[in-house]
Design a protein around this nucleic acid. Sequence first.
DNA 1: GGGCAAATGTTGCATTTGAAACAGTTTTCG
DNA 2: CGAAAACTGTTTCAAATGCAACATTTGCCC
Lengths: 161, 161
Amino acid sequence: MRIEAFFPYRLAVVAEAFSRQLVAVYGREYGLSREEWRLLFLLEDAGSLDSLQLAQRTSLDKVQVSRAASRLEEKALITRTVLGSDRRLRNYAITEAGRDLFRRAFDQVGARADEILEAMPARDRAALERGVAALDRAIAKVTEPETGHGTAFPRPGPIED
Amino acid sequence: MRIEAFFPYRLAVVAEAFSRQLVAVYGREYGLSREEWRLLFLLEDAGSLDSLQLAQRTSLDKVQVSRAASRLEEKALITRTVLGSDRRLRNYAITEAGRDLFRRAFDQVGARADEILEAMPARDRAALERGVAALDRAIAKVTEPETGHGTAFPRPGPIED
DNA sequence: GGGCAAATGTTGCATTTGAAACAGTTTTCG
DNA sequence: CGAAAACTGTTTCAAATGCAACATTTGCCC
């Protein structure tokens, strides 16, 4: 089989290429890593989050969150405080500087993303959004066979993570 | 804006999750990195390639190719020889051991990929393939002037279906 | 031909990343 | 109560990665 015809390869390559286009903006021009970008994105929307909420809404693991938050704190883009109610947890809040930086970056990143997406015919764009949403559901279904109550399919191979 | 509604984020997260499912197979069970997997994939199809052909058909840069090839050579899965016609280039060939390993891995990886894709309704799966192909073309179109890296994989011909 | 620029693959070095160990805090349960 | 287990964030250490310099080979242009 030719690798160009192998769908997982095509998906990975296209997604990486798309991501690179956006990293080129928030990375080169604003010095943000992908993890920092995502944390700022979440915090600009929510204003403030504790680490439990944050873990639920990001696909980053705890090490990535900890390190990205350290860097953002050094740059004074967010603040981190220990929660009084549970001292294991942290409260993350975006600063005004962080908000300003994110908004400027988001303008450019969003414009770049739109430029690419609008280069697609509308029908194709709709197909892409539908397909991505469906793939997301399929992965969740296949990898979480027993999160529901009742009887779950017995899976041939256990997949953790 | 909620990050979950930002399409580039959704695409990246879904693509990473899908890729993780496959890396869990060829990585954990066969000890292959993503780059090694791709090189083996190409070489199993072609049997033998020189480095120019290889550069055209992967989205890997020269350092990644060099390092992945070193590891594959150490494992005796491929051979690397200097080309007589141009001693800057290398000829990569898959060994029998490499072919065997790849075929066994591919059976499992392909099955895992199919398991996920077949968990999608057929219409959604068709939409995904259409959308991914269209996004690839859009990125190529938008980044065409630069022609530099960061584009998607080379398309030998128009995508059917 | 001869010197210089371009092309190719490799290596060095600093940074990043991932997995596991660690430290601090809370919950559980005898 | 209090020891042990569980949970959360951080640190540590080895491996991977990216970027630039490097060495080798070829092509170019006079």
